[in-house]
Structure formats: structure tokens, C-alpha cells
Amino acid sequence: HNLTITQGKLFFHYNPKLCLSEIHKMEEVSGTKGRQERNDIALKTNGDQASCENELLKFSYIRTSFDKILLRWEPYWPPDFRDLLGFMLFYKEAPYQNVTEFDGQDACGSNSWTVVDIDPPLRSNDPKSQNHPGWLMRGLKPWTQYAIFVKTLVTFSDERRTYGAKSDIIYVQTDATNPSVPLDPISVSNSSSQIILKWKPPSDPNGNITHYLVFWERQAEDSELFELDYCLKGLKLPSRTWSPPFESEDSQKHNQSEYEDSAGECCSCPKTDSQILKELEESSFRKTFEDYLHNVVFVPRKTSSGTGAEDPRPSRKRRSLGDVGNVTVAVPTVAAFPNTSSTSVPTSPEEHRPFEKVVNKESLVISGLRHFTGYRIELQACNQDTPEERCSVAAYVSARTMPEAKADDIVGPVTHEIFENNVVHLMWQEPKEPNGLIVLYEVSYRRYGDEELHLCVSRKHFALERGCRLRGLSPGNYSVRIRATSLAGNGSWTEPTYFYVTDYLDVPSNIA
């Protein structure tokens, strides 16, 4: 807008934040220059609390790290170098490059900038070799853009010569660093050979998330399962459950009422301010606690030095998902009996873990797994792929695949051998790939016309006998059925096997 004052003059007093240069501009645009008398524009009460600059400061050096910015700028000295009290560095987070010096300023003089007072450097006698002032900004957020400017702080001049310097606002972004852990990993099994893994992005990506790394490792069953005799009275049979499938998407929606109208769909109840505040506090606490764990609990591995020492970490090797089922080394339970199943799973520490690289999504279907087997899954978020990966501390989750139908069934015939004193040795093959492992066998036998009897055969007993022995049988026709019990439950009964026990007292003698 054009402003013209045809008559009258300007009068400025007691404006401590208004620089004289701005008042002189007002004289020019209003056409009143030359009308004012000496005392109409006070030299001592206008701009006496402001830094009124008329020179431009330029930054000469900028260096960044993930949490620091090192700045240096060209030296500046007023005509009387004693008038320079120091520099004021202003900075704040700036997602967009549209910041002005006066953003967030209120009537009390406060604003949204963080201000650092910096002492002037030592003055050199040689004007050509003056030290460049600077400042190291610490405690910054990774991968965050900051708006920065600097200006001088000078003393009051009796001659009211307006001098000083100020830089333009520059924008500097800190470097990326390792992201925080992925949030809320959930693993479920939808079949006997697959596990579905879902997660949420890290709360602090500290860069642009480029991919996720998912490692999985087959877990050995508890050692007590191999040692305890679950045929003993009072000892509860062990059981394991597989990871249940995901709930429906509708039930997972946030901010939804727990109660549904019987007449149909209901609208979600909005969260109160107290609920939102509580969630923010919980989120802040979780982030602080995660940072504490990362800094205190997890110790970084030592990389190899120039002395030739090897990095103890196993090298990563990509495998196809079809090879995942046989990740671990199978060892027989008892070496003397080769027909026992290889369900003991000690994992070799030198073995390469299978892994998958996930790009542009937060889910993965891990296939080719062994049925009813526990897996430990390790999830890392990465925001750099080359020249070397920059990934987060791992988040861990466990899951067990679903049982395989008929995996616990005894394959092959049940054979028998009759000894003296009416002892019958029953023999059968253990299931080759049971659900988890076989903890015991149930032997059901009966003599024709009598009630059915049951015998429990422990895992250890089966390994020693290759089956079991029935003792003290009365003469007669017998039928026997056997079924295995694994961590997933009972298998199917075998087809009945028949044998006849004679009275050993009636056996004919070869003595003449």
C-alpha cells in the first residue's frame, strides 16, 4: 500500500525493539523526510534493546553428524571492536523451508527459537588472519532439518551509529543413524509349514526405512522333555500350542467401542483428552525405555581390526524358502538304536541362519518350516543398504507352526516275539517326523474274553527296548493296539495285532 503524509511529521519514542533503520525507511515511504526535528525521533529510546544489523554474515563451514552440527561463519568486528559482546545463534526444527525470524513471537518477546549466546573469538592483530567464530550444536535429532541463523550482539553506541551483522536463515539436516526397533511384532501360524509375521514401523526411523531383515531359527525343545518319565503317576503330560491366527481386521481397528449394538453396526467412541494424553505418555515412556535398553543392555560386537582377528559373527547367506525346513542338525536320541526319531534339535552355532529381506511392506510369510516346531524370529529395521547396512537392534518374537495331521501315527506293522515265561516283546517304529517329539506310547492289549488293559511306555523305555515287553501273560489269544502321544496330543491307534500265548508248562520236552 502507498502511504503519503502531505502535512505533519513523524514522532517515535520509547520503541526499544524498533531499529532506527526501520524508522528511516518509514520517513522515505511516507514522504516526511526532512520535516522531523532532532528530538522527534529519539536516538536513545528507539532500538536500544534490539540488534540492528546492516551487514550480512556468511557461514564459512558446515559439518553434520547424526546428532551434531558444527558451524563456522566469517569474522565480524565493528569499528570499535570492544562493542562486540558476542553472537546469538538461533535454531529450531523446520520440516519445511518457510521459516521466518519472527515465527511464534508474542507480545512478551518470546519466540519459538532456541538461542545460544556465543563469546567472540580472540581478536588477531592481523586483519587478514582473524579467527572464524563458530559453535557445535549438540543433542539434535537424527535425520531432522533445522533452520539456523546467527547475528551479532553489540553494545549501545553513544554516537548512535547503527552497526551489526546478521546471516540469512539456512537449512541444515542432520545425518541418518540406526533406527529404533520395529514396533509390535506379531507372529502367527496359518499352516503346519508357515508363519505369518506382521509389525509396525519404528517410532524413530532416523532416516528413510529402506528394508527390513527377518531372521528365523528353529528352537530346540526343553531338555526336561527328553529326561522326564511322563508315565509316572502324578506327572502331567506336557503340551505345546501353536500360535493362533490373526483376529479379523475389524476387531483390530483402534479407537473402536468394545460393545456392539445388537441391531447392527455401531460407531466408534472418540477417545477423551485424558485417554489420548495417557497414550502419549505411555508411548514416550516406551521410547525412553527402549533407548535405555539399547544403550545399557546391548553391547556392540567388536569388529575385526587390522591384526587379522576374525569377526566372530557368522556370515549372512541367503537361502531359498524351500530350504528352511531342514535348518537344524538332527541327532538321534540314543545312538545305539537307529530307529528312534531325530527330534532332539541342538543347533550348531556355526550354522548360517536363513533370512529374508523385506522391502516396502511390514509383513512376511515364512514358508518351508517344520510342522509343530518353535521358531525364534528376529526382526531388524534398516535405513541404508549400501555401502553397508545400517540397521536397528533386533526385536524378537516366537511362534510355533501348526501340527501336521497323521504325523504322530505309527507307520509300519507292530511285530512281536514270544519268549519263555510268557513274555512277549512288542516292537514298532517311532514316527519319523512327529509333531514336536514323542513323549510316550500307549499300549492297549486284551486277552479274548477279558477286559482291555493299558500300559504306558516312556520315551526312554522305548529307546532301550525298541518297544516294550509284556510279562506274566496268561495263555490265550491276544490283540494289541499302540498309539503315540506327542507334544500336540495323541496320534491314531494302530491296526490290531494278534498273537497267541501258550502255557509254557505244557511245552513238550526233548528229553527222552
Score class of each variant (00 low, 15 high):
Pro431Leu: 03
Pro338Ala: 08
Phe372Cys: 11
Ser474Ile: 09
His294Arg: 09
Ser492Pro: 05
Asn326Ala: 06
Ile418Arg: 07
Ser283Arg: 15
Asp291Arg: 10
Glu404Thr: 10
Ala399Arg: 07
Arg466Cys: 13
Lys432Thr: 09
Phe419Trp: 15
Thr241Leu: 06
Pro245Leu: 12
Ile482His: 00
Gly234Ser: 12
Ser458Lys: 14
His461Ala: 10
Leu437Tyr: 02
Glu362Met: 08
Arg469Lys: 02
Arg471Asp: 02
Ser479Leu: 05
Lys302Gln: 11
Ile276Ala: 04
Val424Arg: 06
Thr241Met: 07
Leu379Cys: 09
His461Ile: 11
Val334Gly: 12
Asp273Gly: 04
Glu388Met: 06
Ser304Ala: 15
Lys460Cys: 14
Lys357Tyr: 04
Val480Ala: 10
His211Lys: 13
Phe289Met: 03
Pro434Ala: 08
Ser223Pro: 13
Asn435Trp: 00
Leu440Tyr: 09
Ser223Asn: 08
Tyr504Leu: 12
Arg313Met: 01
Asn421Ala: 08
Val397Pro: 14
Ala405Thr: 04
Tyr441Trp: 00
Glu420Arg: 04
Ser398Leu: 07
Gly467Gln: 03
Gly374Gln: 12
Tyr445Met: 13
Ala335Ile: 15
Glu465Lys: 03
Lys236Asp: 09
Leu487Ala: 13
Val501Gln: 08
Glu495Met: 03
Val327Ile: 06
Asn255Tyr: 04
Ser458Cys: 12
Pro387Thr: 14
Lys271Pro: 02
Leu232Asp: 15
Ala405Ser: 07
Ser251Asp: 12
Pro205Cys: 10
Thr373Met: 08
Leu464Asn: 12
Glu389Pro: 11
Ala488Asp: 14
Pro403Arg: 11
Asn435Ile: 00
Glu388Ala: 12
Lys302Leu: 12
Glu350Gly: 13
Val331Asp: 08
Met402Gly: 01
Ala263Val: 12
His461Val: 10
Ser203Ala: 13
Thr494Ile: 07
Tyr445Gln: 02
Ala394Thr: 13
Arg390Lys: 15
Phe372Met: 04
Ser344Arg: 15
Arg459Pro: 05
Leu277Phe: 09
Gly374Phe: 08
Met402Val: 10
Ser304Cys: 03
Trp216Phe: 12
Ser486Ile: 00
Pro270Ser: 06
Arg319Ala: 05
Val359Trp: 04
Leu235Met: 13
Gly368Ser: 11
Glu433Val: 11
Ala394Gln: 13
Tyr375Cys: 02
Phe226Cys: 11
Leu369Phe: 02
Phe499Trp: 02
Gly449Val: 02
Leu321Gln: 14
Lys406His: 06
Tyr504Asn: 04
Phe246Asn: 14
Ala335Lys: 12
Glu221Gly: 14
Asn421Phe: 02
Glu224Arg: 08
Cys231Gln: 01
Thr497Asn: 06
Tyr448Phe: 14
Val439Trp: 09
Ala394Trp: 12
Pro431Ile: 14
Leu505Gly: 09
Thr210Lys: 00
Leu321Ile: 03
Asp229Tyr: 15
Leu453Pro: 04
Thr307Gly: 09
Ser492Phe: 06
Glu224Ala: 10
Tyr498Pro: 05
Ile209Cys: 03
Arg370Ser: 14
Ser479Asn: 05
Val501Arg: 02
Gly476Arg: 00
Thr415Phe: 06
Leu213Ala: 14
Gly476Ser: 01
Ala407Gln: 14
Ala395Leu: 06
Tyr498His: 09
Pro496Lys: 14
Thr502Ala: 14
Gly322His: 08
Ala381Met: 01
Tyr504Gly: 08
Ser315Lys: 04
Arg301Glu: 15
Leu455Lys: 06
Lys278His: 01
Gly412Gln: 05
Arg471Leu: 05
Thr288Pro: 11
Lys460Ala: 08
Thr401Asp: 00
Pro349Lys: 04
Phe499Lys: 01
Val424Gln: 02
Ser344Met: 08
Asp409Trp: 11
Cys267Trp: 02
Gly368Val: 08
His294Glu: 04
Ser251Met: 15
Glu465Val: 11
Thr386Ala: 12
Glu224Gly: 10
Pro314Tyr: 15
Glu290Val: 07
Asp385Tyr: 07
Ser274Thr: 06
Glu362Trp: 13
Pro431Gly: 03
Gln256His: 11
Trp242Val: 11
Arg240Ile: 05
Ser458Ala: 10
Val397Asn: 14
Ser268Glu: 10
Pro270Trp: 07
Val501Ile: 06
Asn422Glu: 15
Thr210Ile: 10
Ala405Glu: 09
Tyr230Gln: 15
Val393Leu: 11
Glu258Pro: 01
Ser444Asp: 04
Glu249Leu: 12
Met427Trp: 05
Glu290Ala: 14
Arg240Met: 07
Gly368Pro: 11
Val414Cys: 02
Asn422Lys: 15
Gln219Ala: 03
His461Gly: 09
Arg286Phe: 13
Tyr375Gly: 00
Arg400Ala: 08
Asp222Tyr: 12
Met402Ser: 10
Pro475Thr: 09
Ser341Trp: 10
Thr272Glu: 02
Leu505Pro: 13
Leu437Thr: 01
